[in-house]
Simulated scan of single mutants.
Amino acid sequence: MEPPGSIGRGLAAATESDPSRWNGSLPSPLFDGEGDFEPDDDGPEIIVEERRWRAFIPRAEAFAWRACAAACLHAEAPVPETIVLSSDRVVKRLNARHRGRNKPTNVLTFEPPAGFPGGEIILALETVCREARAARRPVADHLMHLVVHGVLHLDGHDHHGAGEARRMEMEEARVLSTIGVPNPWKPRT
Rank of each mutant, 00 (worst) to 15 (best):
R188Y: 06
H149L: 03
N23L: 11
K186L: 11
R133S: 03
P27M: 04
M168G: 02
P3R: 11
G180C: 04
V139S: 01
G24M: 10
H159Q: 14
G8S: 13
A162Y: 11
P44I: 02
A13F: 12
N183S: 10
F31P: 00
E171K: 15
V128Y: 00
D141T: 02
A71P: 04
G161N: 13
H153K: 11
W185S: 02
R136G: 02
M1F: 03
P27R: 15
P113E: 15
I121H: 04
V175T: 11
E61P: 00
N102R: 14
V107D: 00
D158C: 12
V175D: 07
E2Y: 10
H149W: 13
S177M: 05
C129P: 00
I83T: 03
E61I: 00
V148A: 13
R54E: 15
A70W: 05
A71W: 11
L154S: 11
V48T: 12
T189Q: 07
R54A: 01
A140F: 08
G119T: 06
E49F: 06
D32Q: 03
P78E: 15
I179P: 00
L85I: 04
L108D: 02
E81S: 15
G5C: 06
A173F: 10
K186A: 14
G119W: 09
R167P: 01
F116E: 15
V181T: 06
R66D: 04
A62W: 02
A69Y: 10
P39D: 07
G156R: 13
E34K: 10
R9M: 05
R137N: 06
V91N: 03
E45F: 09
H157I: 00
E2I: 04
H157R: 15
F37A: 01
L26M: 13
P138T: 15
L26T: 08
G115P: 06
C72Q: 12
G150L: 07
R9E: 05
P39G: 07
P44H: 04
G180A: 10
H149M: 04
G5L: 09
S20L: 12
A70Q: 06
N95R: 14
K92V: 00
N102D: 15
R101N: 10
A13G: 13
I121G: 02
G118P: 03
G115S: 07
R59I: 01
P104T: 14
M1Q: 05
E164I: 06
L11A: 11
R99L: 13
K103T: 12
H98Q: 08
L108N: 02
D158W: 14
A71D: 09
K186H: 12
